[in-house]
Computed example of a mutant assay.
Amino acid sequence: MRRLPSMTAFRGPRVWWWRWRSNPLRRRSDALEAWVVLTVWVVSVVGGVLTGVASTHSVEHGLAQERAQWRPVVARLTEDAPKATASTASGAGRVWADVRWTGTDGRSHAGEARVTARSRTGTTVTVWTDGSDSLVTRPASLSEAQIRAAMVGVLVGASVAAVPYLGGRIVRERMERRRMAQWDEAWARFGPMWGRKTG
């Protein structure tokens, strides 16, 4: 049984960088499109990488400051902690309760913290405070900070890179529509001449 040739046989060999080479068939729009593609890729890659790296360093720096400035303090429950409910079961049996602690200024401070369910009044718990003796969450560890910073850097870098990439796609689509319109115009002009006999 005779095999049909594959479609690639009709396309011919792929020619790389054809828009950059001297070619009598290359149109001005082809060269312009080549510059658009090059610009889009350079801006997308360089902009995405630079903003991603900057975002990663910024997040790492902020989390490092939290680790340096936030400190654990011992607080005491001022009321019995409630029992765990279905909504708090996912939090390993921890609930919100009122606590009191002594700040760096020597004054007594009060607030709400997550504690073990059913803890009694007077039970000591460890809470974290910032430089103004306000309650904060436990700061991220070094490994947690690195993972968080890397994720933020990737997301920010990808978002920044997507802007010129999408812009380039829009420009190329408009160029393609204009090119098709020019082809239609040329076909309307020269198509009827085909088949005419000359001489």
Score class of each variant (00 low, 15 high):
P164A: 02
V49N: 05
V37C: 08
W96H: 12
R196M: 12
E66F: 05
G191N: 11
V73W: 06
R138Y: 01
S90Q: 13
T88Y: 13
T8A: 05
G131C: 01
V40P: 08
G111E: 07
R107M: 03
V37R: 15
T123E: 10
T124H: 10
D105H: 04
L135P: 14
K83D: 09
R148N: 05
G48V: 02
R169F: 00
R138S: 02
A75D: 02
G157W: 00
E185P: 00
D184N: 13
V115Y: 02
E60S: 14
W16H: 05
W96V: 13
Q182T: 06
T137S: 11
W70C: 03
R67F: 03
L32M: 07
T123Y: 09
V115I: 07
G47C: 06
A149W: 08
E60L: 14
V160S: 07
R179I: 02
S134F: 09
V171Q: 01
R148C: 03
M7L: 08
R3V: 03
T198N: 11
W187Q: 05
V49R: 02
A86Y: 08
M175R: 12
R189F: 07
W18T: 03
R3W: 03
G62W: 04
D105Y: 08
V160C: 07
S132D: 15
W17A: 06
G131Y: 05
W187D: 07
R178N: 08
V43Q: 10
S143L: 10
S29Y: 04
G91I: 10
H57G: 04
G199D: 12
T129G: 10
T78A: 06
A110E: 13
V15I: 07
Q146W: 10
S90F: 12
R138K: 15
I147V: 13
L4T: 10
M151W: 12
A113W: 11
A117R: 10
E79W: 05
T121V: 14
A113L: 03
V45R: 00
V53E: 00
W17C: 01
R21D: 00
Y165V: 05
S141A: 10
P72L: 09
T56Y: 12
F190I: 06
D130F: 11
G106F: 09
Q69D: 04
G93Y: 10
G91Q: 15
R94D: 02
W128R: 15
A158I: 07
A110L: 08
V171M: 04
W70N: 11
A158T: 15
R67P: 01
R189A: 03
L77F: 12
W194Q: 14
G62Q: 15
W128N: 14
E66V: 04
G168C: 03
S6G: 10
L32N: 01
S55E: 00
V36A: 05
S90M: 14
Q69P: 01
A64N: 04
V37Q: 04
Q146K: 15
E60G: 12
Q65H: 13
H109M: 01
L77W: 06
R107C: 00
D130G: 13
D105W: 09
F190A: 01
R94K: 13
L50Q: 05
G91R: 15
T126G: 06
E144M: 09
V59D: 01
V171K: 08
R178S: 07
R189T: 10
E176W: 15
G167F: 01
R71V: 01
S134K: 15
G12A: 06
R172V: 01
G47F: 00
A181I: 04
